[in-house]
Computed example of a mutant assay.
Amino acid sequence: MILDALLARATQRLLQAGSASPRLDAEVLLCHALGVDRTWLYTWGDREPPVFERARFEALLAARALGHPVAYLTGEREFWGLRLATSSHTLIPRPDTERLVEAALAHASPPEGHLLDLGTGTGAIALAFASEQPGWSVVGIDQRPEAVSLARYNAERLAIGNVEFRVGDWFTALDHADSVERFALIVSNPPYIAADDPHLQQGDVRFEPASALIAAEEGLADLRHLASEARAYLVPGGWLLLEHGQGQGRAVRDALAAVGYDEIATLRDLGGHERVSLGRRVDSVTGEGRS
């Protein structure tokens, strides 16, 4: 069977299995099995695949038909133009999160500074920012050692040297005996899905780590915790930027206002949904941090 026919059959199989992007999934998996890019696939669609590579593709296709994420099957996903290694220990980087990177870059006005990425996972946010701001020092933290190892691997593979990754539960990796590290920007894409949300039984999230998805208080517990605790780790005038679910903007703005942030706003993603809320640390007594 030539490649064009193999792709057509695979696309139909994934369509029947409920894939939202059957043709793209089939192409990505076939490219991975053959070790080629999609341009090669389009050019040489009249060729027959070697026996071993076709068997490999059929195995990947069967796993995708069962719902396994393409990013886990291929072991990589592109984010902000960076090719990132992925694993089942981390969330799959998604385009919506690029909105958080854009917002962080928009608030990184000095040529040098310090950014903290909490719950870094693959390191996607930290690495995207660090690649655009080589004068900044970036720290990424995750409570899962497997995630931190993966983020470090991604940094090494991409040769991004102005970032480091640590194991810790939110801010615990920042407290030292005689000092506390402080940052001009703190960003996070924390767990924000309620435990009973039906979306947890759909699509790729069925296979992603629950600890990176689910939060108490209808998905708001970690967002509220970060809003409350981050002030102590921000320099005066520093910004906290939080990714959240499309219906959580008001609750996150309220959480930021309750602990004294200023210039609070919510930004929308490409789909028009509220996606990132942010606020600026201002000393309520002296007004330090105001421009």
Rank of each mutant, 00 (worst) to 15 (best):
Q143G: 02
F171S: 02
G35L: 14
D262Y: 09
V36C: 12
E218L: 14
L116P: 00
E27K: 13
E263R: 14
L115E: 00
L267N: 04
S21F: 13
S131H: 11
E164P: 03
A108Y: 01
F79A: 08
S149I: 08
G119C: 06
W136I: 06
A251N: 06
Q16D: 14
L278F: 06
P198I: 10
E208H: 01
E243N: 02
I193N: 05
S211M: 14
V276C: 00
E288G: 11
F79E: 06
G249W: 04
W170P: 01
R83V: 12
E112V: 09
V282P: 03
S21V: 15
E76S: 15
S277H: 04
R290W: 15
R77A: 04
D46F: 12
S277W: 04
A5H: 07
S228R: 15
D196V: 11
S291D: 14
S21M: 14
E229W: 03
A124V: 04
S211K: 11
A230G: 05
R99S: 05
T286F: 10
A232T: 11
D262M: 09
R166G: 03
E58R: 02
D96C: 03
V36Q: 14
D197M: 07
L213R: 01
G168Y: 04
N162K: 01
A62L: 15
V36W: 04
R83D: 12
L213E: 07
E27C: 12
L91R: 00
L73K: 07
P69I: 00
G81D: 13
P145R: 06
R268H: 14
L41F: 09
S179F: 09
E53T: 09
S211D: 15
P145A: 07
A194Y: 11
G260W: 10
E132R: 15
A227F: 06
D175N: 09
A20E: 15
L118W: 02
P22G: 09
A103L: 12
A255Y: 04
R94K: 10
A17N: 06
P190C: 07
L6K: 05
L220Y: 13
R77F: 00
E217L: 13
S188T: 00
E78L: 09
S109W: 10
F52A: 15
S228D: 14
P110D: 09
E53V: 08
V187S: 02
T286R: 14
F165S: 01
V180A: 10
H244S: 06
D25H: 12
G238M: 05
S188H: 03
D25Q: 12
V101M: 05
A20N: 14
E98S: 08
L115V: 07
D4W: 07
P22C: 13
N162H: 05
D37G: 12
L14S: 06
G119M: 02
L91P: 00
G272P: 04
L100G: 00
P145S: 02
